[in-house]
Design a binder for these strands. Structure first.
Length: 340
DNA sequence: GTAATTTGACCCAT
DNA sequence: ATGGGTCAAATTAC
């Protein structure tokens, strides 16, 4: 009975993670708030900071109201690329305005920024092209900038930044790096391939060693000044981790980051009741990594998503409908794949 | 040959 | 002046 409840809890979390990473265009702030309860510390919508308790996973979704300020050159490029947004972008350029406090005065051209902390920074199912890397002041490791590979062909606006956290788990003996991934804007592209992935492992760790990270309203609101990467700082300071590893249902179509194998972690349910559930990372091996556990992902290579999925990414719903999630959590799929 | 990555320079906001 | 984000030529990988 308890195990059943825990499995259901994890299914809910996976679904919520999916909603977080691939929000539907029709998602309303109120819906997002309700869907993410228990996942996020805070949600900033239109400049208002909502505190959610208790914090489960360190995932902060920010819907900024002001849009990102751009220079005249960038504005012109966007007029070309994003004809649908020409009026809003032109307004941006014409305004050339000073920053708006908490995005309270500008509401057009909303950008959605989702930040999560993960051990597997490339599990989101999209292909990304790296276009820059920057050493951030105070950060131990450089931040990498990626845009969707469909940005040129289809004008997809999705971007993400990946930065290895300073406080990685070296002290825990695991040696697994932890990355902060900030997703900026939503995908407007349509992925060519649509292979539904099978989730090998989905692990959620909630550490109890420190009180729930309370993100100051001021710092969260600051992200609304433009939805820039600075908004990820609250999540970076947390110890909560989301880690997921994806694979594909069709053998041979699995795309791992070049020269990398990713991390595999077998989830173990440790707690009894639904409110105090917890999981534990345990390294596992699969056919994908030939029995060699790579403790740390090489971030110098290209970031590619393990699988190609459609932009609307309804595969999770399919998985839920087909009961594959339960199989996944029972380890049957992992066992099957491991035996291949 | 094509695609992706690297990396110094540049732009812009603060 | 400084820091973050992006560009684009050069380089590398497939």
């Amino acid at each position: 009975m308890e195990a059943c409840m825990m499995l259901r809890r994890e299914s809910e979390l996976v679904a919520e993670l999916h909603h977080l990473l691939f929000p539907s265009p029709t998602t309303t702030p109120s819906l997002a708030t309700s869907k993410l309860t228990g996942l996020c510390d805070t949600i900033t919508v239109g400049g208002e900071c909502l505190q959610l308790q208790p914090p489960g996973l360190t995932t902060t979704t920010t819907v900024s109201g002001g849009g990102r300020r751009r220079g005249r050159k960038r504005v012109r490029e966007y007029v070309k690329l994003l004809q649908a947004d020409d009026q809003e972008v032109a307004a941006d350029g014409a305004a050339n305005a000073k920053p708006l406090p908490c995005g309270k005065t500008r509401r057009k051209q909303q950008t959605t920024t989702s930040t999560l902390v993960t051990r597997v920074p490339d599990f989101d199912g999209y292909r990304w092209r790296k276009y820059g890397q920057k050493q951030i002041e105070g950060a131990k490791y450089p931040r990498s900038y990626y845009r969707c590979t469909n940005s040129t062909e289809q004008g997809c606006r999705a971007k993400k930044t990946v930065q290895r956290n300073d406080h990685d788990d070296d002290t825990n003996g695991g040696g697994a790096a932890v990355y902060t991934v900030a997703y900026i804007s939503e995908h407007t592209c349509k992925s060519i391939e649509s292979v539904a992935p099978v989730i090998l492992e989905t692990t959620v760790v909630r550490t109890n060693q420190q009180p729930p990270a309370v993100v100051a309203a001021g710092s969260s609101c600051a992200s609304s000044t433009g939805g820039n990467a600075k908004s990820e700082s609250p999540a970076t300071s947390s110890s909560d981790i989301i880690a997921s590893t994806w694979s594909s249902t069709s053998s041979g179509d699995v795309r791992w980051p070049s020269d990398q194998h990713g991390d595999y972690w077998r989830h173990q349910l440790l707690a009894g009741d639904e409110d105090s559930w917890d999981t534990k990372y345990t390294p596992v091996t699969t056919s994908a990594n030939s029995g060699v556990l790579i403790g740390e992902m090489d971030m110098t290579g290209p970031i590619r998503s393990p699988v190609q999925i459609t932009a609307d990414a309804n595969w999770m719903d399919d998985l839920l409908l087909n009961g594959l999630i339960d199989d996944m959590f029972n380890g049957s799929i992992v066992s099957q794949l491991s035996g291949l």
